[in-house]
Each structure stands twice: as C-alpha cells, then as structure tokens.
Simulated assay, not measured.
Amino acid sequence: MAYYHVLFDSGLDVMLASLGLGAQTARDSGSSVFTAQAQVHYLRELHAGDAVIVRSRLIACDAKRLHYVQTMDHASGGWTAAVTENLLLHVDLRIRRVAPWPEATAARLAQAVADHAGLPMPPQVGRRVGLDRG
C-alpha cells in the first residue's frame, strides 16, 4: 500500500511544482500544503518493476484549499491500478495555521481548475467510506 502512496506523492510533487508550489517555493515563502483528507481506491494490483503513469486533475479550489484527484495507470497495459482523491490545505509554516493562498497562487490555481474542467472525472470521486446502514 505504501508504494502506491509514494508514486502518487511523486506525481503530486510534479503537479505542485508546475503550479509554483514546489519545495523551493515552500522554503522561500514560508508556506506549504498539508493533506487534510485522502481516499485511495485500489482497483488492480501492480507488481514490483511495473511502469506507471500518474495523472492529476484539479477539481476545485477556494481561498485556502485545493481538491484534486489522481489516477495511476499501468504504462503498457493502459488499465487503472488506483485512484486517489485528496484535499490540500495551504499552511503558513511560521504560525502552523491554515492561511489564504497568495493572490498570484490563487489565480494560477483557479486557472488550472478551469483548464482541467474538461478532463475525465474518475467514477470514484466523491464516494464516501462506510457501510450501508440498511
């Protein structure tokens, strides 16, 4: 299970860097993102050495949060191995509290969400965890 998370996290690093939210930005600005919620759907087993493609789609953002989904596809087989849906919080590291995005970052995120609006949405998005109470 942990290896799926490592692969998703590596894909997240690429996405965040492309949005100006990479590790260097965190060092320079004193702010970063923390995961507030994560849900992973394991759909098909991967094996050591399998090549994968992680795709990220931004779903929504507001003044302090970013909602996104990632799919992990087997590179040669084309099938989806796992889907993760997450909510990130923007955190001021100096005071360790959730804080609004800087204006330029908020604009980049809003544009990226709009750009991603036409991308496929995995059917797992929005599902809750639990047992039916029938």
Rank of each mutant, 00 (worst) to 15 (best):
M72I: 13
A117V: 09
A114L: 05
T35N: 09
C61V: 09
H47L: 13
S56N: 13
A82C: 05
L46I: 12
G49F: 06
A112T: 06
R96D: 15
T71P: 05
G77K: 10
D115S: 14
A26C: 02
V69Q: 08
T35M: 09
A38Q: 10
L119K: 06
S31Y: 01
P120K: 00
Q39C: 12
T105S: 03
R128F: 11
Y3K: 08
Y42M: 10
R97H: 13
G77D: 10
A110V: 03
S31T: 06
L12R: 09
P120Y: 02
L7I: 08
W79D: 15
F8G: 02
V83H: 08
L131M: 04
Y42W: 15
F8W: 00
A107D: 07
G126I: 12
L89W: 04
S10Q: 15
S56M: 03
H90W: 04
V113F: 14
T80R: 15
T35V: 15
V40Y: 05
R65E: 08
D92Q: 12
G49D: 06
A82D: 12
D13F: 03
V6M: 09
L19Y: 05
G49A: 08
G49P: 04
S32F: 00
S76M: 11
H67D: 13
Y3R: 14
C61D: 13
D13K: 08
M15W: 06
A114G: 12
Q24Y: 00
G49H: 03
G20K: 13
G30A: 09
